[in-house]
Design a binder for these strands. Structure first.
Lengths: 158, 158
DNA sequence: TAAAAAAAAGAATATTATTCTTTAAATACA
DNA sequence: TGTATTTAAAGAATAATATTCTTTTTTTTA
């Protein structure tokens, strides 16, 4: 039997929903919303952590405050076999690379990069990415404006 | 003078770094790491919130636990003028759309979608996206494997 | 250099987290 | 169907933290 990720019940989903919106909400406040004892909430949260349903509590920081206003998406073609996950791992190591996805179809990775400006992007492509063997950058899309950017999941009502 | 986003000093950066890794860290623990009083940490955190440098405290949830294993990137061409931001706003409203970026070059949006499976993706494209006037889906990339996916920013040491 | 402002420290209290014990509910199963 | 077993919740007690306020120190500025 799988001890890891069990489908959560309604109360767990409500807890996840509250915590996804505000991870610093107190157990006491969750308990008030759900009308149960704080100790019960505490135990459920611990279990969600143990089961790796909760992966991390994190803080969203304004990128402008840290001078990281440029987003780019880069398509990268890899000439190694499909089974080879090493290219993705190497790409993931590069500072500023936020996402690395292997894409269906054309042996491609899609990489999301966040950095300060186009000069810095160019430097990353020249210094870090070009060091990885057997890849070619096939297309680079620079973001002009971001309308929405979130990782939050849709949590079903029950 | 800009009251909103001031470049943070070294202590603020350390606080941001700790909180980005774990937003539930206590002020007391931050204070211990930085060797200062908890009340001072408390005040700095409040200021970072007020200045909108801290945008949100959130919880990363395992997508598998909520049956949301499929990621897709969709390129969408918009036939309206560049000044028109409405298309992006409409795309952002769709449930499951996590990111909407306007891309330099070809009047395009790049949209990141997270959903349960390809059937659900198809349904989104048919039911929600096709309702938006003046757009064409030019390319859809389905993700086979994600090596890295994070929004965390690189925080400079000082 | 003195005055003013900002940041930190320290102390006191309100609120929470956390642990442990008891009770209730759900489940298994003979 | 009833009983044993497990699981979840409640309740109570204490340890730890958040939060406020006052005082002190540091920094800024004029």
């Amino acid at each position: 039997m799988n001890h890891k990720e069990h489908l959560s019940d309604k109360i767990d989903l409500e807890i996840l929903s509250l915590m996804q919106e505000n991870s610093r909400i107190s157990n006491a406040d969750i308990a008030r919303v759900l009308k149960m004892a704080p100790s019960a909430v505490f135990e459920r949260v611990k279990k969600l952590e143990q089961k790796k349903i909760i992966l991390q509590y994190t803080t969203r920081i304004n990128p402008a405050a840290l001078n990281q206003n440029l987003i780019a998406f880069v398509y990268i073609q890899a000439y190694k076999g499909i089974g080879n996950s090493n290219t993705g791992i190497e790409l993931a190591k590069i500072a500023g690379v936020q996402e690395v996805h292997q894409i269906a179809g054309d042996h491609c990775f899609l990489v999301k990069i966040r950095t300060s400006d186009s000069a810095s992007l160019l430097e990353m492509m020249r210094n870090s990415m070009s060091k990885i063997a057997d890849i070619t950058i096939t297309k680079t899309s620079i973001v002009l404006e971001t309308t929405k950017e979130q990782q939050q999941l849709l949590i079903p009502k029950e």
